[in-house]
């Protein structure tokens, strides 16, 4: 199986686990006659367990990578993640100091989470590509 296929399968599994967990959290939210403290505890427990399951789903894919591919991921997570989060922070600052734009209809905190995640993912993809290009002897990195 190609690396991309294996990655897609793994991410698919992780996404399925996350969707299942989100559904469970929503079900718990709308269950009547449960004290709020117990409800919140149960939701946090589901979130923690599902986060663990996602890691478990990702583990075989991570172990299947060779050392250079693991190194590329580590580098991309660090540099791309840093780049993305600072970029998201900057976006927030620009938004605070300028005329508000037409925001999507969702809670502000959720919009913040999505923007931060997207910026980090984009940063990850860019730095992952750069890592491999630098080591391929391609173009300016000959």
């Amino acid at each position: 199986m190609s690396g991309l296929k294996a990655y897609a399968r793994t991410v698919g599994r992780a996404m399925a686990a996350m969707v299942a967990a989100a559904a469970l959290v929503m079900v718990l939210r709308y269950l009547p006659e449960i004290p709020p403290v117990i409800k919140l505890t149960a939701q946090l427990a589901v979130a923690a367990v599902s986060a663990g399951l996602v890691l478990r789903a990702l583990a075989p894919w991570w172990r299947s990578l060779d050392e250079a591919a693991q190194e590329a991921n580590k580098s991309a997570f660090f540099w791309g993640g840093q780049f993305g989060i600072f970029f998201a922070l900057l976006l927030g600052m620009i938004e605070m100091t300028s005329t508000p734009f037409q925001r999507p209809r969702m809670p502000e905190w959720m919009l913040g989470v999505i923007v931060a995640m997207v910026c980090q993912l984009v940063g990850y993809a860019i730095f992952h590509l750069i890592w491999w290009l630098r080591r391929s002897g391609w173009g300016p990195w000959k």
């Binding site: 690396g3 060779d66 050392e67 250079a68 591919a69 190194e71 491999w132 630098r134 080591r135 391929s136 002897g137 990195w141």
Partner: peptide, 22 residues
């Protein structure tokens, strides 16, 4: 070597130093 072709290329170009086990 049980690595990817891209890794071999990176090693050959001297742009990636292998771990001691490799």
């Amino acid at each position: 070597l049980e690595v990817s072709r891209q890794t071999v290329n990176a090693l050959e170009t001297g742009k990636y130093d292998p771990s001691l086990p490799l």
